[in-house]
């Protein structure tokens, strides 16, 4: 595996703790993702039952929560209404060639579950033994664990967890694995939720109406004749 510096940092910081091999329930065929009616149903891709996908999806859902895709959805905790980061393509973004982190997702998943084992021991929590440890937590514990890693962790390790969180936010807030014009037109859940504006027909944005066109404050009395501060 050809690792870059950032990936090496991840490996160094996270270590290679193992996750117990357990059997996971197979997810049924998911229905159409919430609010995303595009012809390329990218939000469906991340719903397999492998532990890596379940774990990363659970992390994404903790950061930007959404509602379950199907009744037996274990990755999504269902802590918020509407589509969350998973439906917005968090897995697809992380596996997108341009993002460049696909190779280390197994390491990330392992690290998350390793941290979950520690968290469970420290807090007397018994996660569902049929699931990867982090996925076996309810939303409260998932969030509390990520709070610890993201807000109180130290130095480089905290930056690494923050990088993972950043990818989740980029998936939801930028649809970073799709052309933005296409994503907006297809109703990408994140861009739709925040109200990202529609482009013109040529895929470019223009706002011919953009100003209140009113004087709304007095200028500073010391302003120079070219509008500069003195």
């Amino acid at each position: 595996m050809d690792l870059n510096r950032r990936e090496l940092l991840w490996l160094a910081a996270i270590g290679m703790a193992g996750v117990p091999a357990v059997a996971y329930a197979t997810a049924p065929e998911p229905p159409d993702p919430i609010g995303f009616t595009g012809t390329d149903p990218v939000a469906l891709l991340g719903t397999t039952s492998d532990p890596e996908t379940l774990t990363i999806e659970a992390v994404a859902d903790t950061l930007i929560p959404g509602e379950k895709r199907f009744e037996s959805d274990v990755a999504i905790a269902g802590a918020a209404r509407g589509a969350g980061a998973v439906q917005a393509g968090a897995m697809e973004f992380m596996r997108f060639h341009g993002t460049g982190v696909g190779a280390v997702l197994p390491v990330f998943a392992t690290a998350v579950n390793s941290a979950a084992v520690s968290y469970a021991a420290q807090h007397g929590v018994v996660p569902d033994p049929t699931l990867p440890p982090f996925v076996g937590f309810d939303y409260h514990h998932r969030k509390a664990m990520l709070d610890g890693l993201l807000n109180t962790g130290n130095g480089e390790e905290q930056l690494i967890w923050f990088a993972l969180a950043g990818l989740v936010f980029l998936a939801y807030h930028t649809a970073g694995y799709l052309s933005t014009a296409e994503a907006v037109r297809q109703g990408h859940p994140g861009l739709k939720a925040i109200g990202f504006p529609e482009p013109d027909r040529d895929g470019l944005w223009r706002f011919p109406t953009f100003s209140y066109r009113r004087k709304l404050a007095k200028p500073h009395p010391g302003t120079t004749k070219t509008g500069q501060p003195a």
């Binding site: 100003s211 709304l216 007095k218 200028p219 070219t226 509008g227 501060p229």
Partner: peptide, 29 residues
Amino acid sequence: QQTWDDVPYPGGVWAAACHNAGHTCNPVP
């Protein structure tokens, strides 16, 4: 030099909020 006709809505809101709080506010060159 932007005139008030050139200042987009967010700049207008900031200017109006500054004025409301007793401050001046300029369109930015």
